[in-house]
Amino acid sequence: MTTTLRHSPSRLSSLPWDRVIPWVVPAGLILLWQILAQVGVINSRILPAPTDVVQAAIRLTLSGELFKHVTISTWRAVVGFLIGGSIGLFFGVLNGVSRPAELLADSSIQMIRNIPHLAMIPLVILWFGIGDEARIFLVALGVLFPIYVNTFYGIRAIDPGLIEMGRVYGLGRRQLFSQVILPGALPSILVGLRYALGNMWLTLIVAETIAASSGIGYMAMNAREFMQTDVVVVAILLYALLGKLADSAVRWLEKVTIAWHPSQKLK
């Protein structure tokens, strides 16, 4: 009985409803937005119609402006992430495996971690001016701590029984690290990576809107000056898209590197 139902020739029931239904609400909202904007309920100075936003996106793409800003923003994000991420990973691993290093450095790092890094902006501008160094510094600071904390606790949370087993089975210190400690900590490190990427974009948005002459944030602030709300919305959507891309990249990385982990079997 069930098989005949599933292979029903009707086109309606052959649609993958599980994939369609989650899009019903967002699509409906956009449609509503479009209608309200067109009949004039929503002033285009407050919120432009979706079609205007799409037109703005096309215009900016064709002029090459969009590509320029996205490239410079991505460059800042990547450089800041690489600097902050490697510092966080280094200290996370070091303090995770070495008790003396932890005693020396952990509480200091935890103290600095508790300063909201965006509160440092005035100071950072004084230090670096309003150049890219300031923005990269802030991004690095925002990325460092999630990576550090999750690497550190990931290593500490490894079953000591596995480490003992590794020793009995003749693994040297290096092998123990590469075959037991690092893979064991990887799920936690990847959680840290996700947080870090979220922080990365957030920091960049703030840093670019405050003081910049290029980048997506600058594009948005500049458009605000000229009341180009459509461009502002494009900038916001761009940030959302880039954030989503970064998150998908981590998901892919999880799929490849920790396929064994219980979290991967839920999907």
Binding site: D159, G161, L162, E164, M165, Q179, V180, P183, G184, L186, I258, W260, H261
Partner: peptide, 8 residues
Amino acid sequence: DSRLLPWR
């Protein structure tokens, strides 16, 4: 406990 490495 078998102490197998789950990532292998």
